[in-house]
Design a protein around this nucleic acid. Structure first.
Lengths: 193, 193, 193, 193
DNA sequence: CATGAATGAGAGTTCATTCAT
DNA sequence: GATGAATGAACTCTCATTCAT
């Protein structure tokens, strides 16, 4: 029944994902998962020992899905500026629907965990910086962008996005405010000459 | 003995502050406070009904102290660029000693609270943006800075700082990384001509 | 300060009386009394060790007042049937305003106390039976009433009143229902011949 | 194991019943029940959220049992006067063993609950009045009783019983006193002509 | 006498975790 | 594997009662 087991495990992870989006990480109890999945208490423990273990699996799945989506959604031969714009648009969407993202749960989870675990976050961040850097570089080469420090600019963009994310989850943020920040960083890439 | 009462209340707030710095907000129980303060269970309830109420008072005190410190630490007649540098240095110090700041607790607290409460955060953010904007403006007038959009630049700086804060609390961040980001935003203010 | 003390004690008892009327006996805490009287916690303990002690004093005062009222409100030379009607009317008023009487508090108090204490209740009950019996007797002599067993009739009336009281406090009772029962017992005294 | 669950639930209710008979309603805590049932704290909460919920179930069971007993204990073809006497004898037994009845608990419970809940009590009372009325009517038809107002008499009997119950729980009452009251109301049904 | 801050016992409640079936 | 009843530790909160001032 390894096949069936794997299916059930995946089902639990996907259901739990919704719960984490809704309630963040800290407030979620094993009971919440049990209720959402409509399985037995003991049944859940067969697969996951606690919410942390479960959340880690959610993150893993999330990562895989994100990679897939990213690759598929980029049109072949798109211009770097378009790709960057598309990326920022995605981020904006996530920012504004705070209940539809795992952001809060991610923050809560990593607040509690050992720094070592943070490497996953770090890797994601660094990977994103790298991709953006390459986009800016390519864009600079074909004249779309003007930028003397592509890596610095990429990092700046990512930190601003992090700042926006946390702002969205704590004090709330308007669409206009998000647009303003995105516009600001984009202008930094084109307006300088 | 309202005098003594006020003293004790302040003592509790200050002790609680340390606990919140150490453990964030969510994990702190009334018992933690009771133990840290070496007072009785009921005694604590005499002053605060729950950890939220207590944390709000900690924030209030924090705000007052911050105002005092800020005013005192700015040398009269200092140049805008120096003041900004000083501000960023302070922020850097806070970022790197993540156990010495309330950042994590603040985030955890506002994750759970109603958006309305977030206004406090928003006010602080806006106030900081305003101050930085004025610094940049003044700096631009006397030739220290070059900047076409002081408000945009000020907001960018603040969002980067937020991004750095959350990075510090989740994945950890090196001093070099902080310096790099600060340098980047500062260069944006001077290097353009 | 014995004079002042006595005054304060009486003030506490009278204020407590209102609290007991409002909340019954069990739910009343020493804090409730303290709040209602606007005195200090320690101050209350100077006079009463607990709510039972206080309630006993309330009852004592109640009894004295009742005696006074009773004597004063009976017109000299009134007919027995009128006095009885007056008495029943008073009882009815008390029954229908359940928040304006100590009934519930009395029951709650005596539910908890030792049977020995119940003697107070017993004395009150017996005294009332005695008075009613005499009224009936006198009424029988002058032809207002017809009754072969005045004591039995008196006791019957008192038990019905007790039943009505408890009904009023638990399931609620309408004015019509009270009237009906009063009429029934009164008819038993006149209709038979 | 819904079967086993139901058994345990019933076991808790029956054990709780004894506790309520012993201590009334107000003084009973969830811990008392836990101790009496020899189960765990959490285990009890699996079935009942609080003492009120539990007490309501006790009452429900009580009602069912009472109906059964009543039907079974009435001999077929018994005379109305005998049935009434039997009923009063049962009531007397309950009155005299105040620790063996739920009366006190019932009163305490309904003192606190919303009037709407009191309807249960009202229904029971009205039902009993109805039964007694019918008995008296039938008895009057076959000459056992003489009564012009069977409903009034029935109500009078029930209120006296209520009065006796409360007397039993508060000041205590002797067997002789109960007999005296029962005799009085029975005489009212036969002696008048 | 009077005050009210302080204490601590104990009630209520929730949940991660286990285990017999 | 799967179930869900059962456990008990831990937390919140309330009050009667005391005691230094």
């Amino acid at each position: 029944m390894s096949e069936k087991s794997a299916q059930k495990k995946k089902y639990i992870i996907e259901t739990a994902r919704k719960v984490f989006m809704e309630k963040g990480f800290k407030h979620v109890t094993m009971k919440d998962i049990v209720d959402a999945c409509q399985i037995s208490r003991g049944g859940l423990y067969l697969y996951f020992q606690n919410t942390s273990e479960l959340f880690e699996e959610v993150l893993k799945l999330e990562q895989e899905d994100a990679d897939d989506v990213f690759e598929q959604s980029i049109p072949k031969g798109a211009a770097p500026s378009d790709i960057l714009a598309l990326f920022l648009k995605e981020q904006k969407k996530e920012l504004l629907n705070r209940k539809q993202s795992l952001n809060k749960a991610v923050y809560e989870y990593f607040f509690d965990s050992e720094p070592s675990k943070g490497n996953i976050l770090k890797k994601q961040f660094d990977a994103a910086v790298y991709v953006i850097e390459k986009l800016i570089q390519t864009g600079a080469e074909n004249g779309e962008f003007y930028c003397e420090d592509p890596r610095g600019a990429a990092r700046n963009i990512m930190y601003v996005l992090e700042g926006l994310k946390i702002a969205s989850q704590t004090r709330g943020i308007s669409e206009a405010a998000v647009d303003r920040e995105i516009l600001y960083v984009m202008q930094g890439l084109v307006a300088e000459e």
